[in-house]
Simulated assay, not measured.
Amino acid sequence: MTTDLDPLLTVERLRVSFPGKGWRAPRTEVLKGVDLHIRAGETLGLVGESGSGKTTIGRAVLGLVPVDSGGITFDGRPIEHAGRAERRALSREIQVVFQDPYSSLNPSRTVGDTLCEPLLAQGMKGSRARDRVVGLLDQVRLPKDTAARLPREFSGGQRQRVAIARALALGPRLVVCDEPVSALDLTTQATVLDLLLDIQQQTGVSYLFVSHDLSVVRRMSHRVAVIHHGDIVETGDAATVTTRPRHPYTKTLLLSAPVADVDEQRRRREQRTSLTRVAAG
């Protein structure tokens, strides 16, 4: 059992590769020895461009991709090669919220059935599970009658709240948030982010928050890790990394963030172009 000072999750020298395309094609190394940790009640923002390997880290933690080498430790237990039975037990403590709230929900099942499923699978009685569903819907600020409706009857933001409720059903200690607001409009993004922050304050849950957006990561995270081509290139306090980055790649990400001021946007574009040329040369 971890103490308050020990990391809840530790990833050490993690390497993951995928088969190449075509016969005899060499494997493609996606993660090249990644190290990171998350403490209880903490959010680690993991930021990088598409293809950087950030989602693969989350999937490795969840046991959805095989690990070539390195270790993943949760609450002092190695889990990088956990079997099916152990993964089922771990689902009480590690959950996930995916990017697309509609594809992650069964369109033919009511919200109530979707939320009851993990509770019943863990042996909870039906009446108690239904009571738990009412509490979950209240926790994510959805009305009670949501349980009797289908996912298609809701907006994207409401569906993502249902997905969050499902992730919280078993009272996990860690939730992997894989681009949870990137498919939502800006107003809805803000609402969902505020909800996640409130839930963390109420429950003490930890988040591995995966995103390509530094502004979102700044809002959500205590610490930030920046990943580029399968390597962590910068880690530190969220305010520092997202406003005064050291690594050229992090600076490029920061300059890529859109701003309302046209002149400032032009200045950022010129700086980004200059940094890219320096990195290439």
Score class of each variant (00 low, 15 high):
A82S: 06
A239W: 12
T114K: 10
S215T: 11
T235K: 00
K21Q: 14
T243F: 03
L136R: 05
V224L: 04
F154H: 11
S108D: 05
G230S: 03
A25W: 08
V97A: 04
Q139G: 07
S17G: 04
L119W: 05
D145M: 03
I57Q: 13
H229C: 10
A279C: 10
G171Q: 01
L186A: 15
V16F: 06
K125I: 12
R277I: 02
A165T: 11
E117H: 01
D237F: 03
Q201G: 14
Q160H: 08
L184Q: 13
F74N: 10
A85Q: 07
P143W: 00
T114P: 06
L90K: 00
T110A: 12
V16K: 08
R77D: 09
L208D: 07
V259R: 03
S274I: 10
Q158Y: 03
T243S: 14
R219K: 13
S104Y: 03
L186K: 12
S108R: 15
V34M: 11
Y249F: 03
A260F: 04
D194A: 15
G70Q: 03
E153N: 07
T110F: 11
G22C: 04
A260E: 08
V47R: 03
F98M: 11
P245H: 05
P66R: 09
D131M: 14
R246A: 14
R244S: 13
Q265M: 13
V192L: 07
L170Q: 03
K21C: 06
R152K: 12
V162Y: 07
T242H: 02
R13N: 15
L170S: 06
A163E: 02
D4G: 03
Q202T: 07
C177H: 10
G48R: 06
V16H: 03
L170T: 02
R13F: 09
A225W: 05
M124R: 14
R159S: 02
D145P: 07
V259T: 13
R92G: 14
